[in-house]
Design a protein around this nucleic acid. Structure first.
Lengths: 187, 187
DNA sequence: TGTAAATAGTGATATTTATCACGCGACTAA
DNA sequence: TTAGTCGCGTGATAAATATCACTATTTACA
């Protein structure tokens, strides 16, 4: 678990063992079972999560309780309701476990200490955030330029592992189409 | 112009005059007329841009040269083809001026020097990047949960200034609908 | 192991949106 | 001034997608 986080960081920023020990000391470990909520819409957001293993979904429930998938989070992904986390306001989304998961949790307080204490981890978060922004923009472009069939193709190409692990109804929600329409695309 | 940049930074991170002078020295000023290209799809991306005045559009052209609006950039916005800028690869999008604009330009080399030389500006970029990521996620949510009419409403609420300055055909492209459909919504 | 829930497919139909075609007024540059 | 482009609206029609209803199969778990 520790090795995984260290490796994840070192993909972007080389660090010494001491630096890693400092970084690691700010996280706590948690385990969630399928169906459990890490973040609940309407409540506070305590942590930013790093997924060690398992699979999560970031979802939004509208007034009629209909569920929309904003994002998935698999191994090595960082996830939270960022808006609520950084501003310490109530969550507008929920984060739910869809495969038993081990995660590392970072409170906002520890996040700030960490960034102050380590220029390198701050740079890591900056690069991660930029990568996230670029990925979001790609997904927006997909919505603007492509129909359901094309978006599904792009998803298959981009996250082939995900498609194996997630029911199609969730993929449909992620793509912004009804599950029936997605079902008919395959044929 | 300098005051504007300084104010923009200080919204997130307080800085001294000396620190600002150091930051400012890494930017160069450019001016663009309506229609001019700051970034051209297929070519290199020299700069990250800070918009002092005017209005830009970040666009993607598909094979049939159809144009899609990925983003607008007005006063105080930071814009580029981030993917191409950070990885120094060819642009997959174009950045075009739609109202005469004054911009401050930051090369990748200067960006890196700046981040190394100033912890504060790095934190500024981190916070800006996070904000951008959150905004993108909101827009994605809008695509997943809402139809054209609702997305237009949300745009009106979020960027009322923009709607005044931009032809509806461009707004339609930004919203991912045809101009005809957008036109019919108003009625 | 048995039962309920979850997943997936599909037909029928309604709704939304795209596309093509056209007209009109405003602005612009020769 | 005048032709040309641009922005915008709108009708007719086609295509894409949503919705509702039902079934079959698989999966989870008590």
């Amino acid at each position: 678990m520790d090795e995984q986080l260290k490796h994840q960081i070192e993909k972007l920023v080389p660090i010494t063992d001491d630096e890693f020990a400092f970084i690691r000391s700010h996280f706590i470990v948690k385990n969630f079972k399928k169906g459990e909520l890490l973040i609940q819409q309407g409540e506070g957001v305590e942590y930013l999560y790093y997924v060690v293993s398992g699979l999560l979904k970031l979802i939004y429930n509208d007034e009629s309780a209909k569920e929309y998938i904003v994002s998935f989070a698999m191994e090595d992904w960082w996830e939270s309701d960022f808006q609520a986390y950084y501003t310490q306001t109530k969550a507008t989304m929920s984060l739910q476990c869809i495969e038993d998961a081990d995660v590392l949790c970072l409170s906002l307080e520890d996040y700030k200490k960490l960034c102050e204490g380590s220029q390198k981890i701050q740079r890591f978060f900056l690069e991660k955030s930029i990568a996230g922004h670029i990925a979001s923009q790609q997904r927006i472009l997909s919505f603007i330029t492509s129909n359901a069939a094309e978006r599904y193709e792009q998803l298959l190409k981009r996250y082939p592992q995900l498609v194996q692990r997630v029911p199609k109804s969730l993929l449909a929600s992620y793509l912004g189409v009804s599950r029936e329409t997605l079902s008919r695309l395959s044929s």
